[in-house]
Amino acid sequence: MLDHLADRLETILEKSGRILSVLPLILVLVQFAIVLMVYVFATGSIKLQESLQYINALMFLGAAGYTAIHDGHVRVDVFYSKFNRRRRAQVNFWGTLLLLVPFLILMWVSAVPYVLDSWSILEESVESSGLPFVYILKSTLLLFTFTLSLHAIISLIRNRHALKRM
């Protein structure tokens, strides 16, 4: 039952990671367009420059859960790499439960009101010709928290199951 839930959640993160995988290319193309506009055509666009922040936020914050299920985050593993499978499962389970889950609770408690306040006023850029969607940019914090929460659930289920088998 729980393994099935973990599989379903992992599928969600996999699909989101694949969808977001086009963003690095888009980021490079937009940056190239900005450089071309500035240095070749001597013009600029604040909206285009601000769009880089949106793409960057969506790319990094949106793909946090995907990166985590693939163990792609930076890990200081002075000892971890030398641990056997059981010890790694213990570290992952307790690390998720005692470090990641409290962090996620803090993120949910902090980010939800912050994002809702931004949506309530439909917050816009401070630049007069900037993008009028700052509330959407701030919503990427919730996307980050959501995808990392899915990863935490998957990690707890999988590592608990691994500890029971060993």
Rank of each mutant, 00 (worst) to 15 (best):
M1N: 15
D3G: 13
A6Y: 00
L13C: 06
E14L: 15
S16G: 14
R18P: 11
R18W: 15
L20M: 05
L20K: 02
L23C: 02
I26G: 03
V28L: 07
V28W: 03
V28P: 03
V30L: 00
F32P: 08
V40C: 14
F41G: 07
T43S: 08
T43I: 10
S45H: 07
S45A: 08
K47W: 04
Q49D: 12
Q49I: 11
E50A: 05
E50P: 06
Y54M: 06
Y54H: 06
L58I: 09
L58G: 07
M59R: 09
F60W: 06
A64R: 04
A64G: 06
T67A: 05
G72M: 06
H73D: 02
V76F: 11
K82P: 09
F83N: 09
N84T: 10
R87M: 14
R88N: 11
A89T: 01
A89M: 03
F93N: 02
T96S: 01
L97I: 07
L97P: 04
L98K: 02
L99Y: 09
F103V: 11
L104E: 08
I105R: 08
W108C: 06
V109K: 15
S110L: 13
P113E: 01
Y114T: 08
W119F: 07
S120H: 09
I121K: 15
L122Y: 13
V126R: 15
G130D: 03
L131T: 03
I136C: 07
K138N: 13
F144I: 05
F146P: 02
F146T: 06
F146L: 10
L148A: 12
H151K: 12
A152G: 00
L156V: 04
L156R: 03
A162L: 10
L163C: 05
